[in-house]
Amino acid sequence: MLLTPDIVSAVASTGASARVAEHVAPRFRVGDRILVRNYNPATHTRLPGYLRGKRGIVEADYGVFAFPDTHAHSLGEKPQHCYSVRFTARELWGETASDRDTLRVDVFDDYMDLV
């Protein structure tokens, strides 16, 4: 397929969602306490290094998306849930961090386990 001027506007305003219209059971529920896996692949991942081994709480379930770690390497979409997970600044950066501040990171099913 060739991108032609007449379809540019439609391509831009439609985009390409990474959502997958497939029913996949979530591994977690809102409110669950989770531990991020010590997951350190040499291949593509969307798990930032600073989260490895940290504890958080699931705040929202965003639904089912293609899993970047397999999708990047033509190993399939491996559709799974992506969640907003809350971490305290202290959990991530230690005792010198603010005791009030927090982070929200988008985390896939395969990156974490229930505590």
């Binding site: 959502r19 969307r46 930032p48 965003y62 998306f65 600044a89 501040d101 990171v105 988008d106």
Partner: peptide
Amino acid sequence: VEVRVWDTTAEL
């Protein structure tokens, strides 16, 4: 005030 940082690591 709570500073709440959003690291946009997925497709949201």
